[in-house]
Each structure stands twice: as C-alpha cells, then as structure tokens.
Simulated scan of single mutants.
Amino acid sequence: MVSIKDVAKQAGVSISTVSNVLNGTKYVSENLVIKVNQAVKDLNYEVDPIARNLKTRQTKTIGVITIDMCGLFYPYVVKGMYEELNQKGYNLMICDLSGSKDSKSSMEREMDSFKNLVSNRVDGIIFASTVSGQREEGFARDILKMANRNKKIPLVSLEKDFSRYGIDSVFSDGIEGGKQAIRHLIDCGCKNVGHITGPIFSGEALERLEGYRLVLMECGMAVDMEQMVANGNYTHQSGYIAMNELLKKYPSIDGVFVANDQMAVGALKALAESGKRVPEDVKVIGYDNVFISGILQPPLSSIHVRKQSFGSEAARILLQRIEKPAGQDALALKMDTKLVVRKSTVADAVEDWILSDW
C-alpha cells in the first residue's frame, strides 16, 4: 500500500510538505505543489480520511437539518449547499425532521438531530427549525451550548433569523413576500381574497399571513380571519382540504394566496373538482416558485425564492466560520423575493420556462 512517505520520496520533498499540499494547511510554492500532485497521480495515492481527521480534528462533514426533504423546496437548498461544500472536500450528513414515524414532536426530533450531529463531531451545522417564536431564545441558547461542548461547531440558520442570538442566518422577508402576493391579486381585480397558511406555529407561515392581513387593511378591505383563512401544513393534501374549507365558508372567494406551491397543487385540484375556473372564477398564487409551478395547468403564479442561493450562501458563511472562527458578529443575510406572474392569475400571461434556479 502506497504511503505518504512514498509520495514524499517520489516528489523529492519532506513528508510535512506533502501533508501541507494535501491538506492545504500551510503555503507551499507552486513548483512543489506540482511535484507532489504529480507523485500522487503516478503512485495512485489516496489520503486516509480517518488518519487525516484524527490529526486535524476535522471530520470534513457538515451536518444539515431539513424540515421536509421529500417536499419541493429543500432539495434545491441542499443542492446549493452541496455544490459549495463539495468543492472544499466536505460531505453532508442530513437529518430530516419529517423522516421519522415515531411519536416524538418535531422539536424533540430537532434536538435529537443536533445531538446526533454533535456526537458525530461534524465541522459545522446548517439547520432549518420548527421552533415557535416564543421559544426561540431558549432553543438558540441550548443548541449553542451543545455545539460548543467538545469542539466549537459553527451554526447557520435557514429561513429563521437567529442572528440576535449569535447565530448566522440566511432568510427571506415573508411579510414582504406575502404583501407582493396580495397586491398582485388585488391588482388583478380580486375583491374577496382568501389565504391558505402553512403550519400556524411556523414563523415563516405567520409572516406570510401577516403580509396578507396588512395589505387587505391598507386597501380598506374586510379581514375576517375565521372566514377568510384556512390552515395547512405545506403538503398538497392539506392544500386540497383547506381549499375545500374556504369554498364552503367563503363562497364569494375570487382569489387565494397559498403559502407554498406544494399546497397550491392541492388547492387547484379542489377548485377544478368544484367547477371553479382558474383564473376566471378564482385566481391562485403560491409561494417559493418551485419547478412544478411552471408546468401545472394552468401554470401557477408564485413568489420566487432563490432556493439554491439559500443553500449556497449558507454554505459560504459556514465555511468562513470554519476557517476563521473568531470572526465578526452574527450575520443576518436577507434574501430578496420577487413576483412571478403566470396563467393562474393572468389568463394571457406569457409562458416562462426559467430553469436557472428551480
């Protein structure tokens, strides 16, 4: 078996020089880097990851906690992370909060996921959280304590802004996104606008609900939350059930803002079964602008979130923390959202097959 000593001998350099080239730990001149890499190639040498990790105290593994990897949103976020982290030689260990069928609450599964990743000595954790607003501070304190127990493990939050608790965060403005959706429906002539929310304990869902409420109030329109709002849980099944609920209790509804595109799939099915034409009778707008929104019939208007960029920006921030642990204060990176108009709200909207950030 080829060893690092063989590589050093072949390249005519010291073992420490080979180690520095392979691990990127110290500066090595370009000429020596070429010699070492050529020796590695000629000898077909492979680094022993276990031995390297023991020496550097790094596992070259990043932990990722997602809320629903089988949904339409997180695969693109994780893809963005992977593309950034893989370039630096990191692997991903994914814990999905919806992937367990046990009787534990989502918060219990979330804490179990953190414990699992910390015990595996990952080099950093990017996480999405289901914690409710009133419990955020205590939750942030607990995970920071856990992450700093044995070695300092940097954390980056997705979708929630934990920067005030000392945790780097990448998120979008759900209130503004909700406002964009409702303004569009009103601009399209809707007078009776309903809303299908995400899980009501979710901060992101509450932000989108608040955007809905604020625009209706600004426009002097009635806001009856009991009649005009139905709760979902981000699944297409819940969108179907919630849309049928709105049709019963709010029969004059002529527009609906659905808090994600996956629920909008179910909402469109319910409207079709009830004989309602989209957009002639009821206009529908979703949120996230995932790939399916462009191929539904009719294609779904949506609020675009830069999903891959969410993941890649979170990965870049995490890598900076790994390389320079004693850096600046916690970062709060707010990603912009934008309106994408399709035929579910405007019958003659131009087809747009924009594939770049699906």
Results as ranks from 00 to 15, higher is better:
180 Q>Y: 13
227 Q>G: 02
73 F>K: 02
174 G>C: 06
124 G>C: 02
351 E>R: 08
199 P>C: 07
111 M>V: 04
338 K>W: 12
260 N>R: 10
74 Y>T: 02
268 L>E: 02
21 V>E: 09
120 N>T: 15
247 L>E: 02
131 V>S: 11
334 K>T: 03
267 A>G: 12
146 M>P: 09
83 E>P: 03
332 A>N: 04
197 T>N: 10
212 Y>W: 13
49 P>Q: 07
257 F>Q: 08
273 E>F: 11
156 V>S: 01
214 L>E: 08
329 D>M: 13
205 A>E: 01
148 N>R: 15
174 G>W: 03
127 F>L: 06
33 V>K: 14
309 S>E: 15
289 N>D: 15
18 V>R: 13
91 N>L: 10
213 R>I: 11
111 M>D: 00
36 V>Q: 06
286 G>E: 05
280 E>G: 01
215 V>G: 08
112 D>P: 08
30 E>N: 15
179 K>D: 05
226 E>C: 01
110 E>V: 05
282 V>S: 08
169 S>R: 13
12 G>E: 12
134 Q>G: 15
130 T>D: 11
280 E>K: 04
150 N>Q: 13
165 Y>C: 03
210 E>A: 07
127 F>A: 04
13 V>K: 11
128 A>E: 10
264 A>I: 03
113 S>R: 05
283 K>Q: 09
302 S>P: 13
343 K>D: 00
49 P>H: 01
290 V>M: 15
